[in-house]
Design a protein around this nucleic acid. Sequence first.
DNA 1: ATTGATCATTTGCCCTGTCAACTGATGCGC
DNA 2: GCGCATCAGTTGACAGGGCAAATGATCAAT
Lengths: 150, 150
Amino acid sequence: MEDLSLSTLIWLRMVRFVQNSNQLSNDHLRQFGLTVAQFEALAHIRNFQPVTQTDLAKGLTVSGGGMSRMLARLEREGLITREQTWKTKHISLTEAGLALLERAFPSQLHQQSALFDDVLDEDEQRTLHALMKKLYDHSVAERATAEEDG
Amino acid sequence: MEDLSLSTLIWLRMVRFVQNSNQLSNDHLRQFGLTVAQFEALAHIRNFQPVTQTDLAKGLTVSGGGMSRMLARLEREGLITREQTWKTKHISLTEAGLALLERAFPSQLHQQSALFDDVLDEDEQRTLHALMKKLYDHSVAERATAEEDG
DNA sequence: ATTGATCATTTGCCCTGTCAACTGATGCGC
DNA sequence: GCGCATCAGTTGACAGGGCAAATGATCAAT
């Protein structure tokens, strides 16, 4: 192993942590027949419905193509509806989708939070939140720049 | 939008940041014909070769099945070799694989580090590193527990 | 009204990754 | 030596997700 920079070490830890955390969430959500991605999509739809696919894709940081496929699956399962008005499709939760989300939501948030609350006190969480905001905002700006140049 | 807990907000920022960062890395590595996953696999192989697939999968936090497929692709591209001794396959970089990694490595690490160095000073990075270590270690422990119970 | 430009969405092809079932090889107890 | 557990790896079915080319629908200018 060679000497990696501090930022690289942070990066590795963060990526692995996110992977582990996603895995744990997937294990947890399996009882509801959901994946993390589906859970997040349903939660986002609930907060913003009715919403277009494009806005949803932006909000979830995925491409339009990926969004299209995931929504097709959710629609097939009867959890959402896509109603076409004009050139846009507006997405909403169905009764079944809302019911499922409301069953899964509390325990999922709890299991998610526990990963932080178990090891970080409130001060540490505030510090981490501030640092992540800087990093996140910067990454958004970089992506926007890359897009302009591309 | 409802009121989400602090830990949930951190989680969202972190996931989105990692997504953006991966995307930027993929854009950057495209000039070398590599994906982030392949780059990380090659770097890991270089540091530990010769190494078994199982150890590699553990080191990269992916399943055995996923590892098998990725290595098949890397082998097809002529970047690695898999030599079977006894029941185990030992993986090493080929000349071509090493050459490619050495071309891609510096700029990739630089672009990766810049995401942190541009917005966090050294103190902040040390703080973040310590917080991530706590989170990462905890997530590893949770995964181990889940496996035992599973 | 017709032609284009434009925007939303879909779709083909690919890579990443999981899980579970399956193949092979090893090694152990009898 | 034979059968069996065990471990390494592979593979089929699938979800997630990216990119680029193709569709569809709207709107603007002629």
